[in-house]
Simulated assay, not measured.
Amino acid sequence: MWPWGHLAVAYLVYSMYQQRTDQRPRALPVIVLAIGSQFPDLIDKPFAWSFDILPGGRTLTHSVFFALLLLPAVYLVALRFKRSDIGTAFAIGHVSHLLADIPPATLLTADGSALTFLFWPFLEPPAYESVDGILAGFLRYSMGWYEWAQLGLVLGALIVWYRDGTPGIGYMKRSVTHLAEKAV
């Protein structure tokens, strides 16, 4: 799944979670959610595609074993700052990323061979087409049915985000303005 698809899935799940608790999504947790939704690819893709450190773009931070270490640590740090909402947002972003990376065909055929990335390093990740760096991955982008479905998710998430009051926009504007004023 592409970054915008991961962000859309994470936001939709988070918005539903917040509705369950009768709260609207708030700025800082939504920003942390966005980071969590991209985190596995921000680590694995460069280390595999650009630096040849990892054997594939879905290995270390795409593993449930890594998540079992990372998510409690993030949550404990969030609790230390009395912001469990931020720990929850990161966890929803991260876990939704892992689940969204499960190929749709796997769900339709019940063929678990494409799920081995979730159990790295104990299982080898599925063979993927080799990519010569992140830029090359983007340059080979093409629109098939799966990409159109992701675009639909993005549009749906944008509608929900707008309905939720565009959380994060005001916070980001204030932060940029504050940084600009400090620079002058």
Rank of each mutant, 00 (worst) to 15 (best):
A73K: 01
F81M: 02
A149Y: 15
S50Q: 05
G152A: 14
D41A: 07
P72W: 03
L68P: 00
P104I: 13
L71G: 00
G56C: 05
A67G: 09
V154R: 03
D41Y: 01
T106D: 07
A183M: 07
P121H: 12
P55T: 05
Y141L: 15
G144D: 15
L98M: 15
Y146D: 15
S113C: 12
Q19M: 12
P125C: 12
L123T: 10
P125I: 04
L135A: 11
Y162H: 14
P126T: 07
L33Q: 00
L76G: 01
G57Q: 01
A67M: 03
A180E: 12
L99C: 15
D52G: 05
K82S: 04
D132T: 08
Y14S: 04
K173S: 10
L68R: 01
H97M: 13
A10L: 07
K45V: 08
L28N: 01
A127H: 14
L99F: 11
K82V: 00
G133H: 04
V9L: 13
F138V: 07
L107I: 15
H97T: 07
I159W: 13
S15G: 10
V184Y: 06
L69T: 02
L70G: 00
Y14R: 03
L71E: 04
Y141E: 13
L155W: 15
R83L: 02
V95A: 04
G93I: 01
H62N: 05
S113Q: 15
A67H: 02
G156F: 12
Y128I: 05
H6D: 11
T109F: 08
R20A: 10
S84N: 03
L70F: 07
S37L: 01
Q38N: 11
G93V: 01
T88S: 04
T177M: 11
F51A: 10
